[in-house]
Simulated scan of single mutants.
Amino acid sequence: MSSKSYWYDVASGQVLTADTREGEAWLGPFGTPEEAEEAPATFIAMANAWLSSEEGERYLAMARDEAGDLGLDGLA
Rank of each mutant, 00 (worst) to 15 (best):
D69F: 11
D19N: 05
G68W: 07
G68C: 10
R64L: 05
P33M: 06
E34R: 03
M62A: 15
S53K: 11
Y8E: 00
F30Q: 03
S53M: 04
A47V: 06
Y59H: 14
E22K: 15
P33H: 03
A49P: 03
A49I: 01
E34C: 01
W7I: 04
E55I: 04
W26Y: 14
D9A: 03
L27K: 09
T42F: 00
Q14N: 14
Q14C: 13
S52N: 12
E57A: 15
S52H: 04
A18H: 03
W7R: 04
S2H: 11
A63I: 06
A49W: 06
E35S: 04
M62D: 13
G13D: 03
E34L: 02
T20C: 06
A18S: 14
L75H: 07
D9P: 01
Y8H: 09
A11R: 14
G68Q: 13
E57Q: 15
S52W: 00
P29V: 08
A63L: 11
L75F: 12
V15E: 01
L16F: 08
A63P: 01
D9F: 03
E54G: 11
R64Y: 06
S3F: 12
F43R: 14
A18V: 06
A45M: 02
T42R: 13
W7L: 12
L75V: 05
T42C: 00
E66V: 15
N48E: 15
L72D: 04
K4Q: 13
E37V: 02
P29L: 08
F43I: 13
M1W: 05
G28H: 00
P33L: 04
M46H: 08
D9M: 03
E54P: 08
N48K: 14
A39W: 02
T42I: 10
V10K: 09
L70Y: 06
M1I: 11
E34N: 00
E22S: 14
P33E: 01
A76M: 03
M1Y: 09
S52L: 07
M62V: 08
E35I: 01
T17M: 12
P40F: 01
G13Q: 05
E55L: 10
S53C: 04
A41C: 00
T20P: 02
R21E: 03
W7D: 05
A45T: 07
P33N: 05
E38Q: 11
M62I: 09
W50A: 10
G71T: 07
A41N: 01
A67R: 02
T20V: 09
L16D: 03
R58C: 04
E35Q: 10
L27H: 10
S52M: 07
W26N: 09
V10G: 01
A76C: 09
S53D: 02
D69S: 13
P40M: 02
G56C: 07
F30G: 02
T17L: 09
P40V: 00
